[in-house]
């Protein structure tokens, strides 16, 4: 028998059935966190502040209300529209920057500057350009999604192993074979990582735009209900946004496993 430890000593050995134990700990922690929230709010905060018992009470009514549903639909649709536009543009521009040095040199500065800055700073001035309309939200969400996708695809294309291109060359590949047959599939893992970042940024951008431009949607629902002391109702919308974030993230994770069965993160 080998004396080398099987796993990091940081991990203590399991005793119970690992699956059951894990679930029990997670549910227990969840209950503990909710109790903490309930207790702290009851003890410290004014009575209108959201708490688990209050949220649970209003949850069925809010979720079944037509207003909440249509607001949620608007936000979800605009987030997905923006993500769609951002991903397509991001892939095209990222791939082009990754394969063509001159385009890279021309655009890198702009892409990385916009990526570094908080895009939401542009929302007020965009109201001057597009008025107080949904266009502001669509543009900011698309742009917010575009940047991480573009940078990640660029990164993936730049790190493309030279040996793949060599094989392609030896089989008479044309440039489009290299771009779409090799560079693109090789950067798919990067694309999906970029997509996760993009989804996070898209949600933040959508909510901020709804706050500042007073657009119908979950963000405005939260703002309005908070201002009218319906904090529990607002919390339902916050939870809906959190679930949307988690859902997009899990979908990306699922897609990574399902669409990229070949991918082995090193």
């Amino acid at each position: 028998m080998s004396a080398v430890p099987q796993s990091a000593p940081l991990v203590r050995p399991f005793v119970l059935n690992p699956g059951v134990r894990k679930l029990a700990i997670r549910i227990g922690t969840g209950i503990l966190l909710l109790a903490l929230w309930e207790g702290l709010v009851t003890w410290l905060a004014p009575s209108y502040v959201a708490r688990p018992s209050g949220v649970a009470r209003v949850l069925p009514r809010v979720v079944s209300s037509a207003e909440f549903r249509s607001d949620a639909k608007v936000t979800v649709v605009s987030v997905f529209e923006g993500l769609g536009i951002g991903v397509v543009l991001g892939v095209v521009v990222g791939l082009t920057m990754g394969r063509l040095r001159d385009v890279d040199a021309l655009l890198r500065f702009y892409v990385s500057s916009f990526f570094a800055m908080p895009l939401i700073a542009l929302v007020p001035v965009m109201t001057l350009w597009f008025g107080y309309t949904g266009t502001v939200r669509l543009v900011i969400v698309s742009f917010g999604a575009f940047l991480p996708v573009c940078l990640n695809v660029y990164d993936g294309t730049r790190k493309l192993p030279a040996q793949y291109v060599e094989v392609a060359d030896s089989y008479h590949a044309r440039w489009w074979n290299v771009w779409f047959g090799i560079a693109l599939p090789a950067s798919l893992p990067y694309l999906l990582a970029g997509f996760r970042l993009a989804a996070g940024r898209a949600l933040v951008a959508a909510v901020i735009a709804e706050y500042l431009v007073s657009l119908k949607g979950l963000g405005y629902f939260i703002l309005y209900d908070s201002r009218t002391f319906h904090q529990n109702e607002a919390a339902v919308a916050v939870i809906a946004l959190a679930l949307l974030g988690v859902a997009i993230n899990s979908a990306a994770g699922f897609a990574t496993r399902r669409l990229l069965p070949w991918y082995r993160p090193s």
Partner: peptide, 14 residues
């Protein structure tokens, strides 16, 4: 003409 490479050059996604 076909080349067989030391690095195999297999595309991991295929």
């Amino acid at each position: 003409v076909a080349v067989v490479f030391q690095h195999f050059g297999l595309f991991p996604w295929k």
